[in-house]
Design a protein around this nucleic acid. Structure first.
Lengths: 333, 333
DNA sequence: GTGAAAGCGCTAACAG
DNA sequence: CTGTTAGCGCTTTCAC
C-alpha cells in the first residue's frame, strides 16, 4: 500500500487530523508543526488520496469532457484548452468519445457522474429532454448547443456566416450553395438561418444542400450536386467538408477558386495547410474550452443557483485563397 | 446527496452487504433477492460510487493517458482508440497534455497516480531515470519509446523508413535528405538509424537536417537548407513537417513532386487531404492505443510481475502523389 | 444465502 | 493550535 496520512502522522508525532489540516487548511496549523509535517510527508513521498478526500468532501476535483469525436480536428484544441484550464485550477479531466452515439453519450454521463463534479458536453447529440433529466445527477455546461436553463458556451457562427455570404456577394457571386451539416446540429441550424438572412439582405440566391457526413467524405459526395446547382460560391459546414468538396470538384475538372469559391468553418489545421489555403470562419474552440471549464467550476461552486450563464464567443471570416471574384465579375475596389 | 447502497438496502429489505454483493459478486446472491435488489436499485436510479469502491478494493478503474500535445494530429486517433478500448473494459481515462514539458509531465503523473490504476505514457519527454523512479508509484505502459523493464508499445518506423528510402532510390534519387525531429525523440533516432542503414544499402547519399520544431513551422524553416542540400528526395519527421516543407519549397519556386519528392510520417488527415496527396509512412496509432491499454490492464491485474512485454507494431509506406521519379531518371519498371 | 462488523484514507465538527 | 470522534459509500471477512 502507498503511504497514507497515518504514516505521516506517526512519523511526525502528530495526530492524523493535524496532517490533514496541513494539506487542506494550512492556516489552522502552527508554522512549526506545518513545516515538520510537510518535511516528513515530502520525505515519505506522501500524496493525498483524492478519491478518499472526495468521499468526505463530496468534491472529486475531476471533470468530465464528452465529445462526439476526438479525431475530428475541431475538438483537439478544445480538449487541450479545457484540460489545461482545469489543471490550473487543480482539476483533472476525463475525456470520453461518444462516437456520435446518443445512447453511449447518456451511458458515459451516468457512469462518470459519480466520479466528477461536473460535465462538459460538447456538441451533444442527446435530446434536450434527456439532458434536462440527466442534469439532476451532475452539473453540466453545454458547448455548441443551447439547452434551456443550462450554462452554455456558444460560438456565434452566425456572425461569421453573414460575413462569408457578404464576402461572396461582394465578389460578384449571385448564387451561393450552403452545404449544411448533420440534422440535429445546432451549429448547422444557426448557419442555415444566418445564411438565409444574409443572402436575402445581399440579394443573392441560396441553395441549401445536405451532405451525408460532416467530413471530407460528405464534401466529396456533394460535389455533383454543387456542380449542378449552378452556384459559384459555396459555404460548407466545416473545413473537412470544404476540403472534400474541393477534391470532388477537381475530379470533375472544376478548380477552386477558379471556377468556384469555397468557404469552410473551423480554421482547422488541414484547412490552413491546404492549397489553396482555405478561406474559413474561425471557431474559437480553445477559448470555448477554457470558458466552459470556468462556467462549470462556477456552477459547481455556486451550487447551481443563479441565472444560467450564456457565453457567446465571436467568430469571424478569414479570407485566404479559396475565394475570389466570380467569373465575369470585377474585383471589388 | 445521491442515492447510496444504504437506500437500496432499506428499500429492498436486505442488508447493505447483500446489495453490495448483488453488484460486485452476483453469484453469491440468490436469484430472487438479486432481482428484487436490482429492480429497487433501478427504480431509485442507484449507481455504485466507484471512488468509494476504490477505497476498499484499491482499484479505481481509471487510467491516465499522458501525451505531449493533444492538438498534434498524431495523438487524437490514439487517444480515441485508447479511451474506447478502456471503456469496453469498464475503465475511464484521464487525458492530460504536457505541452512537451517534462516537469509538467512528472507533476501530472504524481497527481494522477493515486487516482488511476495505471498510466499510459505516450512519447514521454521525461528522462528514463525519472520514469524508472516514478514507476514505483504507479504502473506504466510506454508508447513510442523504449524504457528498460517497462511494458512498451513501439511503432516500428524503421520498417517504413527503409521502404521509403528504397522507394526514393528506386525512383532514381541519389541524394536524400532526412528532416529529423526533436532531440530526445525515440522515433527520430529510429528513423535516423534506419535511414542511414538503408541509404547505405541502396548506395545513395543521406543528408541529415534538424528542424526546430516537429510541426509545419519546422518544415517551413527547413526549406532553405533542403533546397541548398542538393537532395531531390526528402524524408520528414512527420506529415506536418513535410507539409510545411512543401510550402516552403513552393515559396522558393520549387514544386513537389516535380523538383523534389517528399515523404512524411503518420498518415495524418492533413497529409491525406493535401494536394499533392502526401506519400507517407503509416503509424498504427489507433492500434497502439488499444494495445497499450491492454498491456496496462494486464500489468495491473498481474501485479506487475512477469517479463515486461514489448509490442512492435508494423508500419509501412503508402505511396501517393508527393513522390515521383528524379529528374532525368527513368520510371522504374 | 445473508447479516454483522470492521475498515479503506480522509475530513469535519467538537472539545480542550 | 491540536487531539477525539464519527462517518463518507462501499467491500470483505467472519459468523450464522
Amino acid at each position: 500500500m502507498a503511504v497514507t496520512i497515518r504514516d505521516v502522522a506517526r512519523a511526525s508525532g502528530v495526530h492524523v487530523s493535524t496532517v490533514s489540516r496541513t494539506f487542506s487548511a494550512p492556516h489552522l496549523v502552527s508554522a512549526e508543526t506545518r513545516n515538520r509535517v510537510l518535511a516528513v510527508a515530502e520525505g515519505l513521498g506522501y500524496r493525498p488520496n483524492r478519491a478518499a478526500r472526495a468521499l468526505t468532501t463530496g468534491r472529486t476535483h475531476n471533470l468530465g469532457l464528452i465529445v462526439a469525436d476526438i479525431a475530428n480536428p475541431f475538438f483537439p484544441p478544445l480538449i487541450k484548452a479545457a484540460q489545461e484550464q482545469a489543471r490550473e485550477r487543480d482539476y483533472h479531466v476525463f475525456v470520453a468519445d461518444t462516437d456520435e452515439n446518443p445512447l453511449l453519450e447518456q451511458e458515459l454521463i451516468e457512469m462518470l457522474s459519480k466520479q466528477v463534479d461536473g460535465v462538459l458536453l460538447c456538441s451533444p447529440r442527446l435530446s434536450n429532454r434527456m439532458i434536462e433529466r440527466l442534469r439532476a445527477q451532475v452539473p453540466f455546461v453545454v458547448v455548441n448547443r443551447q439547452v434551456k436553463g443550462l450554462p452554455t458556451v456558444l460560438m456565434d457562427v452566425g456572425q461569421g456566416v453573414r460575413a462569408a455570404v457578404e464576402h461572396l456577394a461582394a465578389l460578384g457571386h449571385r448564387r451561393i450553395a450552403l452545404l449544411s451539416g448533420p440534422s440535429g446540429s445546432w451549429t448547422s441550424e444557426e448557419m442555415h438561418d444566418a445564411a438565409t438572412a444574409a443572402a436575402d439582405g445581399a440579394g443573392v440566391e441560396l441553395d441549401v444542400l445536405r451532405p451525408n457526413d460532416p467530413t471530407e467524405r460528405g464534401g466529396l459526395s456533394a460535389a455533383a450536386a454543387v456542380a449542378e446547382s449552378g452556384a459559384t460560391g459555396v459555404l460548407c459546414y466545416n473545413d473537412l467538408v470544404a476540403l472534400g468538396l474541393i477534391e470532388g470538384l477537381r475530379e470533375r475538372g472544376l478548380t477552386v477558386p477558379g471556377d468556384l469559391s469555397v468557404i469552410g468553418v473551423d480554421d482547422s489545421l488541414p484547412g490552413r495547410l491546404n492549397r489553396p489555403k482555405l478561406t474559413t470562419i474561425t471557431m474559437p474552440t480553445a477559448a470555448a474550452g477554457r470558458m466552459a471549464v470556468d462556467l462549470l467550476l462556477a456552477a459547481v461552486n455556486a451550487g447551481d443557483t443563479g441565472t444560467p450563464t450564456l457565453a457567446r464567443l465571436e467568430t469571424r471570416l478569414i479570407v485566404r485563397e479559396s475565394t475570389t471574384a466570380a467569373a465575369g465579375a470585377p474585383l471589388p475596389a
